[in-house]
């Protein structure tokens, strides 16, 4: 794929009337979840995208060797999440006094009374939800990529992983760090710990993984494990 070429789109072919749609076998149809438009399935080639004509929702976006890439990214992310949450993240010093915190410390800083709920939510959004999503993705995709039968409860695992997608907020936390740093800059000297850089890489990986993953392809391969 040439770098300078614009991404190629392929619009779904639409059946001209409802009568034809009812004759098509159900597994040959795809319905847009946003606008309910129904199409006869046409698989785009790797790198192409099938887009709903009415609402422009991307329905299928396969990539060449996406499965392997996602698995690689997920493994790297699991290591990074764990390392980034225990190593020192930021350190401040004023007049000889220093304080170093990890991401886990930051998440658990709300610890008094009802604030505990907030601590658990924050820790969940930044660390546990991304971590769990990566682990579930590995669990679902490894058998699929290796052409094995789908893992036990893989449907259930992928369901949870997808439901958690909006609640994974690593990239928002990253921007929050930038704001916090400016706020503290006047007050004290801030230095970055190793976890700061790990977290930076992690954010890029999380975003890349979301971009590579084609939901429809995963559901389809869970339904027909061998055929793909």
């Amino acid at each position: 794929m040439g770098v300078l070429h614009p991404p190629r789109y392929r619009y779904m072919w639409r059946m001209s009337d409802a009568m034809n749609l009812t004759k098509t076998p159900l597994e040959e149809l795809i319905v847009c979840p946003i606008c309910d438009a129904t199409y006869q399935l046409q698989r785009p080639k790797a790198g192409e995208r099938a887009v709903c004509v009415r609402c422009h929702k991307v329905l299928i976006a396969p990539r060449y060797k996406a499965g392997m890439q996602i698995i690689a990214i997920a493994i790297a992310s699991v290591v990074l999440v764990i390392a980034a949450s225990v190593f020192p993240f930021l350190e401040i010093s004023v007049a000889g006094r220093t304080n170093a915190v990890s991401i886990l410390d930051a998440a658990l800083s709300f610890t008094r009374g009802p604030m505990l709920v907030l601590a658990l939510l924050t820790a969940g959004f930044i660390i546990f939800v991304p971590l769990l999503r990566m682990l579930l993705t590995l669990y679902v995709l490894i058998p699929v990529v290796l052409d094995r039968p789908a893992a036990k409860h893989a449907v259930w695992a992928f369901r949870i992983s997808e439901a958690m997608r909006p609640w994974s907020m690593a990239e928002i936390f990253a921007l929050g760090c930038a704001v916090a740093l400016v706020k503290v800059a006047d007050l004290a000297t801030v230095s970055f710990g190793p976890a700061f850089w790990m977290f930076g890489v992690l954010v890029v990986l999380v975003i890349a993984q979301d971009g590579f993953m084609c939901k429809w392809s995963v559901w389809n391969s869970l339904e027909y494990p061998k055929k793909r």
């Binding site: 930051a106 924050t122 004290a188």
Partner: peptide
């Protein structure tokens, strides 16, 4: 984002 800023600040600024 604002919640995360508060979380980072209150963990970090404990001198």
């Amino acid at each position: 984002i604002d919640i995360f800023v508060v979380a980072i600040l209150s963990a970090l600024v404990q001198l």
